[in-house]
Design a binder for these strands. Structure first.
Lengths: 336, 336
DNA sequence: TTGTATGCGTTATCAG
DNA sequence: CTGATAACGCATACAA
């Protein structure tokens, strides 16, 4: 990675075209230039294979046309979708994406923020877990799934409504004794409301329920212990489960089936996220689908919003229920 | 996205510390500076919250510490893994990743190459499908899964060996009449060799086989037609199938089961890629696993290789077979 | 209209 | 060792 790109400058183009450098700049930026001059410049650009140096431009204009996305990883399908749709929304606006993975390492997130600020990105979109993350001001910052303060806009799916919807659906499909299990971080973020919504609807429907919240130091074995504790004579006490994520739902279903408990015959299961096999095929579990595309689009359009003071500090986008084979829907025909 | 980041410059730091700007630069870049001066500069940096402007630096040094990755998307789990591991390899070297999605749109790929060249990225890693893609010279360029010329290093899994391995495993597990189905682009790339290896091993093992190659204008319905054509009395003619990707294997298995054909009892199925549920749980099908992490690491280390003339033009990394529930392995205990 | 000249923030050279 | 200054490539204000 040594050789410098033997690239030409506006000066070279100007010389080649026999015009001044300012004229070249105008042509490159699509400003009005007399026809014959424009032609000559374009010819010279073509001939030399000239490419604008965006570093020079950024230094001058203080604008990089680049946005940073900070996210734990891209292997989790939900994050992968987010990455994809955010890039699409940026690309539509002729922006590039500087992608940074925190790998869930709390100390990494402030480092990444510092890094991308040094790159003078025009904005930052971040999905973070660091407890006391310091949000820089002076740079447009949008967070996903986590509310910091009114001055830092947060975009999320309507987690509370999603929790309610899960309870309602389980009830509608015949469940009378359900549980919510979440496997998340200790900090309070938007996804925490999945439980609140679930509980709210359970109470309203007068449906018996239990909840289990696991913190970071726990792993799936703790979920297993919990479920074992609620099994009697090879049957689970619950006839419905709502899991914090599709991934947890998937793991749980496998565990239940290994223990001879049928899904959805004995226990109906609903997850959260809306993950599809290979990103594009069928849904892996019955689930509350996050409107990922809309979340991405909202993040980007808020970032580009001209007046930053009229931006709402929290935007919750509507979710929907999706059959995925792990519930006993009346009309599961509406598969996708 | 209006306000400029009210950020300080080296000049401000120099003034604050009462030193010359050159001294600040040296401190920032970790060069030797007399202790008392260094302290004063560091204090000033701290006080002002100074952040290097990498655009200025890039303009001066012609180095951005940024590498572009051009790939169709991040929703396909294989691509998602690639994105993840490439970023990790870059991050280790203190490089950032400019991520660009081509969405399989042939015209988009040259546009993206031009864009990232304007950003003066230090290198490009690309997984592309555009038939006559023009690889710029003057900038380090590594391709994945597709060989262009000896001057453009290509990194891939050992597709030929993978094809052979699939045939060998199917044979070992009792298959005697197998088929390979691939659903790919018309251009010849490394994954095309999956078929060659498969055929090679079938001939060697004297195992009856058939192959089906679908071009871009086809879709899964054509695979269905093919399979229907090879069904008699509710049974498939083949007792083993090797699919070009795990995704195709997954679709095929679903189709077979819908038609009352059991997997792996009636037909054993092997895919290619090594996709896991949710990126980290169990393998979705029995498969030939691509060494994604090693591919990523190789791409990056080749990009950073000091002498670009000693770089091999094609690197094929070893694959392995992985049980995933769709074959009848002797010792399927070695699950993961 | 076009051309010229300045400065963006940084690094590196070179004289002190 | 430090400090002043030129140059990187570009956009723009201003002069022609």
């Amino acid at each position: 990675m040594k050789e410098s790109q033997s690239t030409h400058t506006m000066m070279d183009v100007a010389r080649e075209a026999g015009v001044a450098i300012g004229t070249v700049s105008k042509v490159v930026n699509g400003k009005k230039v007399a026809e014959p001059y424009r032609i000559r410049v374009e010819k010279a650009i073509e001939k030399l294979g000239y490419q604008v140096n965006k570093n020079g431009r950024a230094l001058r204009t203080n604008q990089t046309n680049t946005v940073a996305l900070i996210i734990p990883n891209s292997t989790n399908p939900y994050f992968a979708q987010l990455v994809h749709y955010i890039d699409l929304a940026l690309a539509q606006r002729n922006y590039s994406m500087l992608l940074c993975f925190s790998e869930y390492r709390p100390k990494r997130e402030p480092e990444l923020i510092q890094m991308v600020r040094q790159n003078r990105v025009d904005g930052i979109i971040a999905l973070t877990y660091t407890p006391d993350l310091d949000i820089p001001n002076g740079i447009p910052f949008i967070t996903i799934d986590r509310f910091f303060s009114v001055s830092v806009p947060c975009v999320a799916s309507d987690n509370f409504a999603g929790g309610r919807l899960a309870a309602q659906k389980l009830h509608e499909f015949g469940c009378r004794n359900v549980a919510f299990i979440r496997f998340g971080s200790t900090l309070t973020n938007e996804p925490s409301k999945r439980k609140d919504g679930f509980v709210s609807a359970c109470l309203e429907l007068e449906m018996a329920f239990d909840t289990l919240l696991m913190t970071e130091d726990k792993d799936f074995r703790d979920v297993q212990s919990y479920l074992y504790g609620h099994m009697h004579d090879g049957r689970l006490d619950f006839d419905g489960l709502f899991l914090g994520t599709d991934m947890l739902a998937w793991q749980t279903i496998r565990f239940l089936r290994e223990n001879g408990i049928r899904v959805p015959e004995d226990v109906q299961v609903i997850g959260y996220d809306g993950i599809r096999a290979f990103g594009s095929l069928e849904y892996l579990v019955s689930t509350i689908v996050q409107p990922v595309k809309e979340i991405a689009e909202t993040c980007v359009s808020m970032l580009f919003s001209p007046d930053r003071h009229s931006i709402p500090s929290l935007v919750c986008l509507p979710v929907r229920y999706q059959y995925g084979g792990t519930t006993r829907d009346q009309n599961a025909a509406e598969d996708n």
